[in-house]
Design a binder for these strands. Structure first.
Lengths: 151, 151
DNA sequence: CTTTATGCAAAAACTTTGCACCGAG
DNA sequence: CTCGGTGCAAAGTTTTTGCATAAAG
């Protein structure tokens, strides 16, 4: 049950990056909001609550660093909005989970099942493509919104 | 073997939109470059070759209209780039195909197989989510780039 | 002390909007 | 003729960059 923070510090050191207060603040906000899918502005605002002097540029630079290091995922929602989420399972290199995106209320539900192994195998073989990761989004209606429209 | 163009004109009329030269030009460029995944700037430049007076705003307005009408898909590639592609199968309302994205050369290969029906069924049932469409991207290395790295 | 990171503001990249004029129906 | 569409330029958004200063190691 390792703290991600240690992992974070280790990874930074490993690559010669410095461990700064701001970087810790940004990661903390993302960790404290697991499952929430914050965008850069939301992260910036939350970090600013604790550290009002931080600049948006630092947040962008940190997000891009965290993404590059694989500590967070950039989730691109096709509606022009970019959100970030924690990678919960850094060590095992699992595939990221899927997202169910409600076309009505825009709620994002995460789905832990992977279920894509067979498909990957088929596609790998047929197209000679070595698959490292995938991104799967299902668009539709959640139960709440579906009810609104009756049948 | 209906021409998409007719479909296009019909759809426009249906919704009360006007059939303009510029709209035809934009659709033509996208049709002439099927499989190429052009971004807005590329489309703008190609249209400008034939019609130098067109404005970028018109291209954006047309792309957004075509997307809204379902004639093209907006493909968001997670690298901050937005590309557009033709919907080849307007009538049957099939799911869009998948994309294989090479992490090295950025080539995008399209995969026609769908193969997601089982998964959709499982997820629908388990999460009470009515799935209308999906977006699937596989990230990895194409055979050419894989060879570069040996084993 | 050296090098990287930060904050600020300016710039860049991309997209949308307001408005007067134009053209499809 | 009428109303929606267009081109242009200006304005928005979101993200990146340059630079002097601050802080990590």
């Amino acid at each position: 049950m390792k703290e991600n923070a240690n992992n974070f510090n280790d990874k930074l050191k490993e690559k010669g990056y410095k461990i700064t207060f701001q970087r810790k603040q940004v990661l903390d906000v993302i960790k404290d909001n697991e499952g929430k899918h914050l965008n850069s502005e939301e992260i910036y605002n939350l970090v600013k609550e604790k550290s009002p002097d931080i600049g948006i540029a630092t947040v962008y630079r940190t997000l891009s660093l965290l993404d590059k290091m694989g500590l967070i995922y950039k989730v691109d929602l096709d509606e022009g909005s970019v959100k970030y989420e924690l990678d919960r399972d850094l060590d095992s290199h699992r595939h990221r989970h899927h997202h169910l995106i409600c076309l009505d209320c825009n709620e994002i539900v995460e789905v832990e099942e992977d279920l894509l192994d067979d498909i990957e195998e088929k596609i790998s073989a047929k197209h000679n493509f070595f698959i490292k990761d995938h991104s799967v989004k299902f668009y539709g209606y959640c139960i709440k919104c579906r009810d609104k429209y009756g049948d």
